[in-house]
Design a binder for these strands. Sequence first.
DNA 1: CGAATGATATACT
DNA 2: GTATATCATTCGA
Length: 191
Amino acid sequence: MIKLDTDFYSRGNVTEVARDLLGKVLCSRVGGHLTKAIIMETEAYAGVDDRASHAYGGRRTRRTEPMYGDGGTVYVYLCYGIHHLFNVVTSTLNDPQAVLVRAGSPVEGIDEMLRRRGKAAVDETLLSGPGSLAQALGIRTDLSGTSLLRDRVWIEDQGIGVAKDAVRVGPRIGVDYAGEDATLPYRFLIS
DNA sequence: CGAATGATATACT
DNA sequence: GTATATCATTCGA
């Protein structure tokens, strides 16, 4: 049970980090509740050259500021007015690369996840979809800009192995507006 | 399949 | 400062 550190996040290769995050355990301690989930699906957002990224072309606003932080910074933002999307900043200062966590598998604090999601029993939709995942773990925009090296949100390596042929790669979801960059194989998921 | 939803970015006054 | 188009989605038919 090892908390991932800066070396993991700051490798400077987003797609590699996105791939390696599969099988890791995303943990949060919010409102006194501990929740943990195995990461099942990720997407890489490759900085200023990626049209799907908020930081495309070096755009820099108050919302995207955390993306320009050091590796291991948390970037949470609101989409469609409702959904909180959880991202992990990879790479180093002023190199805005990030990994979006899209889906997970519940490990701990399941009762609390159910309560936050308004569900009575675990089903496959509990942690599927970036908005749902963030909601179940209690992740909201107030966590944006915090560090994964602290104790509110972090990621552990519990030694869960992911076979190479169990990883599926494909184009990212919901980024049609990004033109050619929408077809890049930046999406990773465990089948 | 289609509507809801509200913070944010951008272009104005 | 104010207005409006936009959006890395979800849920209910």
